[in-house]
C-alpha cells in the first residue's frame, strides 16, 4: 500500500514537471503557427528590417525595425541605470550594511519587486515624465528615457536579490584570506568577492534585462508610443510589447496585421529565450 502511494506521488510529480515543459512547447507552437503565417504575405527580410510600421495603411507596411530599436533603446537605457545601481545596492546589502539594516533592505527590495507595473507606470506618468520634460526642454515627457528609468526600477529588485545571493555565498575563506593579506574591505570586495561572484552577477543582469524586454504596461504608458525610427533616447518610441498590447484588440482575426503581431510575439519569445539561456550559461559556468 505504501509502495503504491509512493508510486502515485512520484508519478504526479513527474507529470507536473512535464506539464511545465509541455506548456512552453504548446505556447511556442501556438505563437509559431500564427506568427509564421505572416510570411505568406510578406518576406522575413521586410518584416525584420522594414523601417515602417503602419499596418493599417494600404497596402499594410509591416516592418518591426522601429519597434525593435524602441525596445532596444529602452532596454539599454534601463540596463545602464539599473546595473550600477543594483550592483551597488547588492554589495551594500551583502557586505557593508549591519545585520539589522540588511534585513530591512532585503525586505524593501522584495517589496519593490511586488509593486504592480501599472503602478510604476502611473507614478512615472505623473511624477517622472514632467521632470524629464522640464530638464531636457522637450515637447513631451513621454520618451524612451522615461521608460528606461521606470523599467530600471523594475529590474533592480530581480538583479539585487540574485546578486546579493551570489555575493553572500562567496566562501568566507576568500574574504578572510584577502583581509589577512592586509587588503582593505573595499579591495577585498572588488578584487576577490566580485570576481568570485561574477557568474551570479552576470546571470542577475541577464534576468533583469529579460524582465525589462518583456515588460509592457509601464512602457506603454511612459514611452509615448510613436512607432517611428528613434534617433535619440529623448524621443518617444514604441516597443514591441507595447505594440502587441495596443493593437491586438483592434485587429481583424486572420489579417496580415493579426499575424504580424504574432510574429512580433515570436521575436520577443526568441529574445527572452536567448537571454534566459545566456543567464543560465553564466550561472552554471564554472569559475575560471
Amino acid at each position: 500500500m505504501r509502495r503504491f502511494k509512493e508510486f502515485i506521488i512520484e508519478k504526479i510529480i513527474l507529470l507536473s514537471g512535464f506539464a511545465c515543459i509541455l506548456f512552453v512547447i504548446l505556447i511556442f507552437f501556438f505563437l509559431a503557427k500564427d506568427g509564421l503565417a505572416l510570411f505568406k504575405f510578406s518576406s522575413p527580410w521586410n518584416f525584420l528590417f522594414g523601417t515602417l510600421w503602419s499596418p493599417l495603411s494600404e497596402p499594410p507596411q509591416i516592418g518591426i525595425l522601429p519597434l525593435f530599436l524602441g525596445s532596444l533603446i529602452v532596454t539599454i537605457g534601463a540596463a545602464v541605470i539599473s546595473v550600477p545601481l543594483g550592483m551597488a545596492c547588492a554589495i551594500f546589502i551583502a557586505e557593508i550594511a549591519p545585520k539589522w539594516m540588511r534585513e530591512i533592505l532585503k525586505a524593501g527590495v522584495e517589496l519593490l519587486a511586488a509593486i504592480p507595473s501599472i503602478v510604476i507606470g502611473f507614478i512615472g506618468m505623473t511624477m517622472l515624465s514632467p521632470i524629464v520634460k522640464h530638464i531636457f526642454h522637450l515637447p513631451t515627457g513621454l520618451t524612451a528615457l522615461t521608460g528606461s528609468i521606470a523599467l530600471a526600477f523594475m529590474a533592480i529588485p530581480t538583479m539585487v536579490s540574485i546578486m546579493e545571493d551570489s555575493i553572500s555565498s562567496v566562501p568566507r575563506i576568500y574574504k578572510e584570506g584577502s583581509l589577512a593579506l592586509g587588503a582593505t574591505h573595499w579591495q577585498t570586495i572588488y578584487r576577490v568577492i566580485i570576481p568570485a561572484a561574477s557568474s551570479g552577477i552576470v546571470a542577475a543582469i541577464m534576468l533583469g534585462i529579460g524582465r525589462v524586454i518583456g515588460e509592457t504596461m509601464a512602457v506603454m504608458m511612459l514611452t509615448g508610443n510613436a512607432s517611428v525610427m528613434p534617433h535619440t533616447i529623448l524621443a518617444p518610441v514604441r516597443t514591441m510589447t507595447a505594440t502587441i498590447a495596443a493593437e491586438m484588440g483592434e485587429t481583424v482575426r486572420g489579417s496580415e496585421h493579426y499575424f504580424a503581431l504574432f510574429a512580433i510575439g515570436l521575436v520577443l519569445f526568441g529574445i527572452t529565450f536567448l537571454i534566459n539561456f545566456l543567464a543560465d550559461m553564466a550561472r552554471h559556468r564554472k569559475n575560471k
Binding site: P171, I173, Y174, E176, G177, S178, L179, A180, L181, G182, R191, V192, P195, A196, N287, K288
Partner: peptide, 17 residues
Amino acid sequence: LRKKVGMVFQRPNPFPL
C-alpha cells in the same frame, strides 16, 4: 597590522583567480 602578521588557513583558500 595584517600586512605584518599574515595568516595561512586550515583549508587552502586560493582566490578563484
